[in-house]
Amino acid sequence: MSFTLPTYEPPDFSAAPLCDAPPVTLIPAPYKGVAPDDFHATTIYPEYYHCGNNEWKLLQNPRMDCVAVRRKSGSFEAVEFRNLKKGDLVAVGRTEHGEQGIYVHVTGFPQFAPDREAFAFRTGLTRETSFSIDYDFLYDLLRFERDSGFILWVLGPAVVFDSDARNAFSNLIANGYVHGLLAGNALATHDLEGALMGTALGLEIYTKQPAPQGHYNHLETLNRVRAAGSIRKAVESGMIRNGIMRELVALNVPFVLSGSIRDDGPMPEVMADAYKAQDAMRELASRATTVITMATQLHTIATGNMTPSYHVEENGQNEEEGRVRPVYFFSVDMSEFAVSKLADRGSLTAKAILTNVQDFAVTLDRALSGECAPHP
């Protein structure tokens, strides 16, 4: 089974009611960080703004819960309230069907429209849900995305608490299936602890047996890496010889480590300023064509909020705007609550897989490395 991108169907602006839509109203921001009254809040879906003379502009780099600002070039950009400048031209209007020159296009990918009977069994996500077809789809998608897209991973520390999972994810990086990574201080710290001491939070990462005075190990790791100056310098010096952070640095894969109020240390690359970390996370999320989050509720929710349902490619069928394609979003967790939060985003392409993330990482690596025969 080979993967092909779904076809995007843009709106018909020559048909009613869009052909009769007025131009969007733009009002200057009255103060820094303050939007005008009746501002339009952006969504995760393709949004178009009428500029007059039946010219509609697509918001190309969207994010939910922002405002739409028209730039001097004529393009529209999603801007957080905190980044608004006084005088920025902000789109206003609370309707989304063209009545005020704003159109939110929720049917651009008809392939994702629901197609099921009104009554059916086992349509919800539970521990009894089967995921075989989701795995097969994911294998095909990732093979396609490795060369044609941008695969962004969002990891919790559970991925490195197991030796096989840590090795498996390191293989995924080495084999080109990781183009960017978002995580916190704990993922990096315990991965590096595994490289230096073979433990994670003091437990041996294969046997799970506690090491003597193992509660010092992550602190010792933090101290050594801080003394080296950075994770990158620790890798380049030969101090770190294996693991996820080593592979990321060796292959120059971009990563963002976001700080937390509970962090130890933290590692030198961890961003303590939450808004700077958010900006850095958004930069990678805006490039993503597939996002996979694993065992991290807070980072999953945060990334979900900054990831649109579509991505505009630079060189597509439309020379001005590029080809519009869906962004795929997967959440992997043992908790039904955690994966249900993904569905609450409303993304048409969102999928959840309810499983142990260590098993998931190993299964994925084996399939993509050719150790498992594809499902017939």
Rank of each mutant, 00 (worst) to 15 (best):
H311T: 00
A78N: 10
T4M: 13
P110E: 10
P6D: 10
G214E: 02
D12M: 00
Y216F: 07
H40Q: 05
P11R: 06
T129N: 05
T300K: 01
Y31M: 08
A352I: 02
S347Q: 07
T307W: 10
P114D: 11
T363Q: 11
T126V: 03
M245K: 05
L59S: 12
R226P: 01
K86S: 11
L59V: 15
Y45F: 15
K85C: 12
N53H: 13
H50G: 09
R224E: 04
S132R: 09
N61H: 15
N185E: 07
L342F: 08
S132T: 11
R226D: 04
G33N: 00
R71Q: 15
D20K: 07
T207I: 05
F330M: 04
S258T: 15
V160H: 02
N53S: 12
G229R: 05
A211H: 08
T43M: 08
R82C: 03
Y310W: 03
G74H: 12
A277S: 11
P30T: 05
G180P: 04
P30Q: 03
G265A: 02
E193H: 03
A188E: 06
G243N: 05
P268L: 11
Y310I: 04
E55P: 03
E247W: 06
S170N: 02
T349N: 03
A16E: 11
G346L: 04
E336W: 01
V79R: 11
L141V: 01
A188I: 04
S260A: 15
E9F: 09
R116A: 14
N53M: 01
Q317W: 03
M281Q: 13
E313D: 06
V106M: 15
T25L: 14
L203W: 14
A338F: 10
V69G: 12
P266L: 01
G259D: 06
T123H: 10
L222M: 03
A21G: 07
I261S: 14
Q297E: 12
F131K: 00
G93D: 11
A272H: 09
N217V: 00
A200V: 04
G214K: 06
A274W: 05
I301K: 10
N356A: 02
V332L: 10
G52L: 08
N83L: 09
D38I: 01
S130G: 07
Q297H: 13
Y8Q: 04
Q209E: 14
G202R: 04
F161G: 05
Y216A: 00
G176F: 00
